[in-house]
Design a binder for these strands. Structure first.
Length: 275
DNA sequence: AGGGGAACCCGTACGC
DNA sequence: TGCGTACGGGTTCCCC
């Protein structure tokens, strides 16, 4: 569930909480969340490392270490990075998959109820390779209308599916794809190549605006998402499309519809004002 | 190359 | 009430 705004919120909070801390010890309780590294090797490579910075790339939380290694966390649906200052409840501990003990007595946990999320450890070369396969960051200057136009022009896939392809544009998932297309008044099923220059400019603006507003609201908590201190994001109240099937369109009052015709994912739109 | 489908995982919802 | 099963959801990987 965490898309770009939620992941950004997690990474910012985490950076404020653990920047400069040194790692003492690592213990892995559920090794099936690990990717590209064994539990043993993870513990070895993290021990005594200093945490330089936590930041976001696409829907990933990246933790830079002074060793050059990066911890790359993909929370997927129910993953969370939580800091235990000694006040964790039993259920929070139950879902902890791994614990990183810090030099100030606190511990960073990766907790994940369904464990579809992943934790990888990458050296600089591997991280560059991995990150290089991901598309442009929509909040970077590089995400221009010209760039979006080139992405859309190249495909006959539905525009909504294109927005969610991480190799093309990084960080947009089902919620913000629905929102941006509603704002731009574009029918999500239209082929990428059919989107006009004017529509592309409006769509780019809609994407940037909705992501920015959602970050300000600390993300959307629809079902599971909570930030590092367990709090919900408030953008759910501002959603115009996602989760509003059957409710009146906030522009024209006609009933929003939800279909699963695009890539099997829930698409909610206004048939009257999205063309 | 690009597309389709399975696998990953388990809480929740639903049927009997 | 209890048990069994289908489902969801993003990404990766395999196959066509």
């Amino acid at each position: 569930m965490p898309e770009l705004p939620e992941t950004e919120t997690i990474a910012r909070d985490l950076d404020g909480a653990i920047r400069g801390r040194k790692i003492r010890n690592v213990s892995v309780r559920k090794a099936d969340v690990l990717r590209e590294v064994s539990a043993r090797s993870l513990a070895k490579r993290l021990r005594d490392a200093t945490i330089l910075r936590s930041w976001r790339r696409a829907k990933l939380v990246v933790i830079d270490l002074d060793t050059g290694d990066r911890i790359v966390v993909q929370p997927r649906f129910t993953g969370a990075l939580l800091i235990d200052s000694g006040n964790f409840t039993r259920s929070e501990l139950d879902y902890s998959t791994l614990r990183i003990d810090l030099d100030d007595g606190r511990a960073l946990h990766y907790a994940d109820v369904r464990r579809l999320g992943t934790v990888a450890l990458m050296d600089p070369r591997r991280f560059e390779e991995y990150s290089g396969k991901l598309g442009v960051e929509p909040l970077d200057r590089a995400f221009t209308a010209t760039h979006l136009s080139a992405v859309l022009r190249a495909t006959s896939q539905p525009v909504k599916k294109v927005l969610m392809e991480q190799r093309k544009i990084a960080g947009i998932g089902n919620i913000y794809a629905n929102e941006a297309l509603w704002r731009a008044r574009i029918d999500p099923s239209r082929p990428g190549a059919s989107i006009s220059v004017e529509e592309t400019q409006l769509l780019r603006h809609s994407i940037v605006a909705v992501l920015g507003e959602a970050i300000e609201a600390r993300g959307t908590s629809f079902r599971d998402y909570r930030d590092a201190s367990g709090k919900r994001g408030s953008f759910v109240e501002k959603l115009d499309a996602y989760g509003r099937g059957g409710l009146p369109c906030r522009r024209c009052s006609s009933k929003l519809i939800t279909t699963h015709a695009i890539d099997g994912r829930a698409t909610t739109m206004c048939v009257k004002c999205q063309h």
